[in-house]
Nucleic acid binder design. Structure first.
Lengths: 209, 209, 209, 209
DNA sequence: CATGAATGAGTATTCATTCAT
DNA sequence: AATGAATGAATACTCATTCAT
């Protein structure tokens, strides 16, 4: 029997954050199907019962993960001030951001993919994911619309359809058998051509005309 | 004396097909996570043990579903003779086919999406899905390459990247909050413009210049 | 589908014998706990249903195995005419026979051990095994009694107890960690001394004074 | 923060002991073949899941039973101080102990027999049983060797072979159709004669010359 | 807050047996 | 006689959740 009186313990929100992080790591690793409450608790360094105290059910856990994703998503976008840039430059930054996440924070995408899948059959999750998805889509629509108005993009580009194509293409690179970034860069370049965007400035990382 | 445990019986094949159909319906409905052998058996109108007689394990079941998907996929493609058509015409047909499946056989996509998700963590499934995915991608690449050569598409279109964009865009329409076909048609039209494809002939269903 | 019309098939008793042999082989290999009707049928080269036609239940199968053991046991004993031999000589022959079976037909012992174990809780099996066990024990008792009367063995040897010791010792050699025959021979020699039996004749294989 | 899944709790140990006792009782009653986790749990007065919490698998259960047997075995032997006794006296005590166990704790033998049987095909069990078996055999060997040296037994008694005969004979009494202790006593007396041991002292219970 | 222990409702799989052909 | 197919009843094991302390 080991004494378990470690009082240097984060409580409340900190606990919930730890649980969310553990859950996300495990979802990224094994998917929703293989997600077990005991594993999450173990990963968070606490007992299952303790976890249930903080997050009373698996449903609540899923909501917590969704919220955690949304927080990260929003924070990530807010961390990038884009005032004063042209629509074309912003679109290139969006691509660069996606590339960055794709390479260094792929778990975010993995968890998101799992949540989207689950959202199809669970209206609660769907409700939690919709804002995020909508926010992202609308943001691209706005960029494209502004770019069309300002002459950065093709004049007959349909911003709504363009946003779907843009996001679909980026996400599609992750389904592609070629996991390297080389294919991603070709797709990015092709999108630029397809949208009538001129060659990128030398300073930007997407450069590959 | 020869051991006669040959499951490639006509009856056996029929049963296996029924099981595959039941499994696919349930996967489309509830996803892989909610897939229960008892439910599949019930849906196929047989006893659980009978199901295990024909499909000995859940792993085998997944393989069966993968094979069933592939069979359908191939059959669907072979059902469309495209000899004598231009690359542009064929691409429009591809879009029309996707639209058709999206509207009348959406379960096929749902099941495929589930399988792709599962494939990430299960190499067996991945191996079963790869050929299908590869076949589809390669086919689009071929169409685009031919179209570029024949002047149907933009001269600087990158067939590899274009295929990823094309498929990503089509699949992306299903993630889109707007479930109607109206958005799909806008995306299709935008793709046509993006690839430098001229306006479609009046007879084709994608028409929406 | 493979055609299964092999009419060069043993029937009736021959089938039952084949089934018994298959069952015995499997019991020797994996014990009663791991005995499966399908495996027996497969080993006998027939279908499970066919096997059930000939041997209608597992209980019947056990009885069949018991009978098969008894038949072998009796046959083995009858194959050794001992007329005209002294009690001491016969006892040595018994030891030699045991040694022979132990080395070249150990499965017989294994199956017997399994049956005896099962007999404890299954009166049907017990009933089938008792005669065999009794026959063997009585035979040793008779040999010992005759040997005492004829002066081959110690005068105060109790034939009943002696038989238990004799059989227990021989069977005990199989529980012994040392699986070689060397230990068996030492035990045999010690029994001879314990029963007051003089040194064996040069021709007999047990020789090891 | 330390993970606290330590099952060596006082409560846990008590539960494990109860489970072991229940398992042993059921093995004695119905053998290994008829051993069901649900029955053990019911006998121990707990839920099946609770049982799996303490003993995670049937394999672990078997190990637990083996350990429990070994503990009892060792405890029983340690409970009998034999300092200052002659080899012959100790052998008689061994016989008396066996008789005692045979009459009042026969389940111990039954379970042991089942375990030995299972050990043949399961190396894990074999490993757990070997020490016990070896300990017992070696102990008898030592007694016999000392007795030979001290003149208590026949000078030409082979201690190794003698131990096998001794144990085989005692165990053989349990296979014998006559379940009463009368036959056991005859065997014990015969062993004494066979080993050249003089008549026992009047005070000892085995006395039956 | 935290935890060891407990549990009900599942979950895939197994197996002897039966049955239509 | 023989077989492919079918099935009911079990069986070990899992998991989210609860509860006493």
């Amino acid at each position: 029997m080991i004494a378990c009186t470690d009082h240097n313990t984060p409580t409340g929100d900190r606990r919930r954050a730890a649980i969310a992080a553990a859950a996300r790591a495990l979802i990224a690793e094994r998917g929703f199907e293989g997600l077990r409450t005991r594993d999450i608790a173990a990963r968070a360094g606490i007992n299952v019962a303790t976890m249930h105290y903080h997050v009373p059910s698996k449903e609540a856990l899923v909501a917590l993960v969704a919220q955690s994703l949304r927080d990260d998503f929003i924070a990530q976008h807010n961390a990038r001030p884009r005032a004063g840039l042209s629509a074309g430059e912003i679109l290139r930054l969006e691509i660069a951001d996606f590339r960055e996440t794709r390479e260094h924070n792929i778990d975010l995408f993995r968890v998101m993919a799992e949540m989207m899948e689950k959202a199809r059959r669970d209206e609660n999750i769907a409700a939690a994911m919709r804002p995020m998805q909508g926010f992202w889509h609308r943001q691209i629509v706005d960029i494209l619309a502004r770019g069309v108005a300002e002459g950065d993009f093709r004049a007959d580009l349909d911003p709504q359809a363009g946003a779907t194509i843009f996001l679909g293409a980026l996400i599609g690179t992750m389904r592609h058998p070629d996991p390297t970034s080389a294919h991603f860069d070709r797709v990015a370049a092709e999108i630029a051509r397809a949208f009538g965007l001129g060659p990128s400035q030398p300073a930007l990382p997407v450069a590959k005309a």
